[in-house]
Design a protein around this nucleic acid. Structure first.
Lengths: 180, 180
DNA sequence: GTCTATATAGGGATAGAC
DNA sequence: GTCTATCCCTATATAGAC
């Protein structure tokens, strides 16, 4: 099995159990590899596995969500595309945000800088699109942050109340809130 | 040491390490009690401790935040009071939300129903105040949900980017967003 | 009510055969 | 590259003295 194939199978484990709750036994079961085989692919153990998953999810996120903000289309269309991809990326609200998961507990110590950087790139990229759309830079930054807040908060609320409606609504209203 | 005193000392442990990341050793150190003493107070072990902390934090939250919505004042003033208490309760954005923490991983299995109920009570109570303030019931519910989203999302963003500004801004704008 | 000591299980991690 | 077997450590939990 390739490293990439293994990583793909390991994503749901971290998403469901968090960093601390994820054990090598769970990872072993999910991947179909023995613990020793996991250490063959990831000599650094659990931490390296989490880092690999973090990178993998980041590439996936960039290919879909971030990429939709870097096309040659009009700002309105870029943001609409982003929203559509966000909805898909988060399984209509059912899937947790990997960055948010990695911002709790021990994982926060290990991955804080990487998570922070990833979120800030996203905020900055979105802000650029808003500026391109005629929003003042200061306001653009605030609105981009607000978009992050909406997404993260909606994902939490959805998980708590077992209802994806708030997430769908948040995504639906995002273009209007961002561009007036 | 009384049960209550012990619980108060244990809150920060769960807030910092999450449910999975919290160990009896950490709880022992934080409380100054030996592990066996913890089992004397909480025969159910870690799960019972978490449940006790959950209840304790809930009572604290009700006394401050929820209570401010149940005064005899005008809706505007109730909401302003709530916002002030929210800011205090979450340490200006530096403190995590206990309910959100308990919505991840194994804790989500154990406490899902209790967390859901607590959040729904809060949403319903806030919605009632909005209705009292002249908002249509359907819209009131949506806006109350949006308030939860803002708070939860802001707490996450704050932790990720090490900057409490988004939380302060969210709280500041909350009364206007809720009541138009 | 608190302690020391200990039981039992599972976690992360490694050695070495194949 | 994958496995079985094993090591060490820490986790939860309990027994029993004080």
């Amino acid at each position: 099995m390739s490293r990439e194939q293994a990583i793909a199978k390991l994503i749901p484990v971290f998403r469901k159990y968090g960093y601390e709750g994820t054990t090598l036994s769970l990872l072993s079961k999910a991947s179909g590899l023995g613990k020793a085989s996991l250490y063959h692919h990831f000599p650094g153990g659990k931490e390296e596995i989490a880092a690999a998953v973090f990178e993998y999810v980041g590439i996936w996120f960039n290919k879909t969500v971030l990429n939709s903000l870097q096309s040659e289309q009009k700002p309105e269309l870029k943001i609409q595309a982003m929203c559509k991809n966000l909805q898909e990326f988060y399984g209509n609200g059912k899937e947790s945000c990997f960055s948010a998961i990695m911002s709790f507990g021990e994982a926060n110590n290990l991955f804080h800088d990487r998570v922070k950087h990833r979120i800030q790139v996203l905020i900055d990229t979105l802000a650029q699109v808003l500026i391109e759309g005629g929003i003042e830079p200061e306001l653009a930054k605030v609105r981009s942050q607000d978009a992050m807040i909406e997404i993260q908060g909606a994902l939490i609320l959805v998980r708590i109340i077992d209802d994806t409606e708030p997430f769908e609504r948040a995504i639906e209203n995002l273009p209007r809130k961002l561009l007036n």
